[in-house]
Amino acid sequence: MLELKQISKVFYEGTPDERKALNGVDLTLKDGDFVTVIGSNGAGKSTLLNIIAGVLFPDFGSVSVNNKEVTFVPEYKRSKLIGRVFQDPMAGTAPNMTIEENLALALGRSNKRSLFRGVNAKRREEFQELLASIDIGLEDRLNTKVGLLSGGERQALSLLMATFTKPSILLLDEHTAALDPARAELITNITKDLVKKHQLTTLMVTHQMDQAINLGNRLFMMDSGQIIFEAQDKEKEKLTVDGLIEEFQKIRGKQFASDRTVLTS
């Protein structure tokens, strides 16, 4: 379970560049929720993820995971509970280490890292099974350095590394944005399978409206640091891309108008 209360974050406070990235965001994710978040650039999606992950600390408000407050817990401690996949396929894996070593690293997330061998025969077998489950042919390449894999393969591996230790929260940061359409679809399908298999509570940021509509049971739309629209279950199933754009314009239009009156008066 993830709970955010009144989260606010301002960048460059007190300078002409001051920007309110988040403005009093409240949200609660129940166990097993799969939330997609859409919004234009600068809407505050990435800041939101960074605050949940502990890369940034909020100016105001609190973050709690499984009813434990973690607002100011540093990233490396918090990531025991939180799995994460980045937009950049290079970011989620160590290029000069082999596939099995990367998986062993991910295993260290939940247990304390020891002075025992990271990759032993038993683990190698488990890793092989794990890789076979996503079915992209990585199971025979355990000793390949990850730097030699393609972007799609690396992203699939990052996804596996972020999920197989069953974290309490899974954060996906536009993780298909850097891939070609075919690879993006493959990764989307793997995401769907893995989330379902491990029953993960997931927050996924995306730019693609159809992806946001097709995945998950809840949808948030963000703009200027606030969640401006939310749809759940049946309501969400009825959503279409056109409907979403209309909804967006309806809300945006109103704000636009009110901005105008302020400016002209």
Partner: peptide, 9 residues
């Protein structure tokens, strides 16, 4: 960056 997200100090 990756190691931090895998809970290593």
């Amino acid at each position: 960056r990756m190691v931090k997200s895998l809970s290593a100090n």
